[in-house]
Design a protein around this nucleic acid. Structure first.
Lengths: 249, 249
DNA sequence: ATGGTGGTGTTCAATAATCGAACAGGTCAT
DNA sequence: ATGACCTGTTCGATTATTGAACACCACCAT
């Protein structure tokens, strides 16, 4: 296929049973610092972070300095920490091809349907929103922001992702998660629907995107009014998904 | 000002001369793994990453396992590593208020001007693109993606950021970086312009956004044709910047 | 002024986390 | 089947990490 790309042979990733190599303590703590900071809604001092992490302040100091070196963290005027631009650079590389292929489709969908459109990927137990596009005349903007995560067993994107495989395939890949019966119908239709699942009052439609070599994703829209022509929108989503898949091949 | 926000007193962030605390080795390596992975345009095996990082394979193994635990990394079908969705979650927290305030303005600008609009923040020597919105009828989409970085001394966004402060303030905050004379004029006009600076053939206009407590940012558009009414577009940018600033107050 | 409070940054011996070699496999070409 | 290349695991030696203690600064009440 790609004659230049050498060394294609490699070993499998066997079922990850209880891993026997203990995680790196320092690295874990560093990441936890980032997670805490991302969840906090205001900048935090080193001392606050240290107590939040449950480590000695001098340990936090060293860790935060390191994160700062790599621009994953920046300081306030007052010296307090907040997430840094380096994270945006790293995030751009997440499913880069999918992001690139999906963006034009999302723009097109958002504006023609006048709904917020987004791509979500399957990550462990969750569905994570990767890119979003809001419609042009967004008066009451539905804020579906990137980085949002919710259970993959709830909402149209999750159902769509499930619908890209059979119940049996699902039980292999996600033995702990239930297979939603709606996925079977979504499989027939080419798209999935949900109402009031993730956020009360909101409805969502989604179509699966099969990504070669990776877990499946979904392209979706959210909306408020229930009186939509679900079939038409669903088919538009499925068509977009097909175009995206063809670009990823 | 904000009576609820307790504990406002804190120490300064004195000039960061050569830091005397050595960075955490393990954490640095973990971040470097992410950087390498983000720069690579294909998934990498553990062995490849190890040699790329210049560490023993078993060291890389432990580090990657840890990153995987936190969903900053996911594996290929074949067990090779690629950036994970957790990074998207963290990135969403970068200048969250700015992102939120800017998004509607970007959508509005992109569609009314029919140009790609984006927000860039100042990070060390660089200008990093945070959010972008492409116009609706994007035939030839200018792919200005989030995460793009280029020197803050080049391009309209960089000049706009410089224009938000005087040459003297600049020399304090960025002693190593030159102050572009264009910034003085941009300061008068309320917006900055550049041609062929970052990417040959592309022009850009930008207005500064002053962010309370943080480094300044910029809102900008890129376009190909030179025959634009620069003043009108520049003023639209400045107006958007003003609205964003008022939301951040 | 003066001390109290809450913060940052630095140093250093003790300790526990990390390192890296060696081993045990698995998969895919040839 | 043989070699090439990979993942995952174990374990003693080494070294990075830890955390207490110290010096210092800014701000606020008293």
């Amino acid at each position: 296929m790609s004659p230049v790309r050498s060394s294609t042979r490699q070993a499998p990733a066997p079922a990850d049973a209880a891993q026997s190599v203990p995680p790196s303590q320092t690295l874990s703590r560093g990441i936890r610092a980032l997670e805490i900071l991302a969840a906090a809604e205001r900048p935090l001092s080193i001392a606050e972070l240290a107590s939040e992490m449950g480590v000695h302040r001098s340990v936090a100091y060293r860790i935060l300095r390191t994160l700062e070196d790599h621009a994953l963290l920046v300081r306030d005027d007052a010296g307090r920490m907040q997430p840094g631009a380096g994270l945006a650079v790293l995030a751009r590389a997440v499913s880069r091809d999918l992001q690139t292929a999906a963006l034009p489709e999302l723009t097109q969908l958002a504006n023609s349907l006048n709904m917020t459109a987004f791509v979500a990927v399957w990550d462990r137990q969750d569905c994570v929103t990767l890119v979003t596009v809001e419609p042009r005349h967004s008066a009451a903007t539905l804020a579906q922001h990137p980085g949002t995560r919710h259970s993959v067993t709830a909402g149209a994107p999750g159902i769509a992702i499930q619908s890209s495989m059979t119940a049996e395939e699902w039980s292999v890949l996600a033995p702990d998660l239930p297979y939603r019966p709606e996925a079977a119908e979504a499989r027939r239709l080419g798209y999935a629907a949900s109402h009031d699942e993730v956020i009360a009052g909101l409805s969502s439609l989604a179509a699966p995107i099969r990504v070669p070599g990776s877990r499946p994703a979904a392209i979706a829209v959210v909306y408020i009014r229930r009186d939509q022509d679900q079939a038409a929108v669903g088919q538009a989503l499925a068509a977009s998904a097909a175009r995206i898949e063809s670009q990823l091949a």
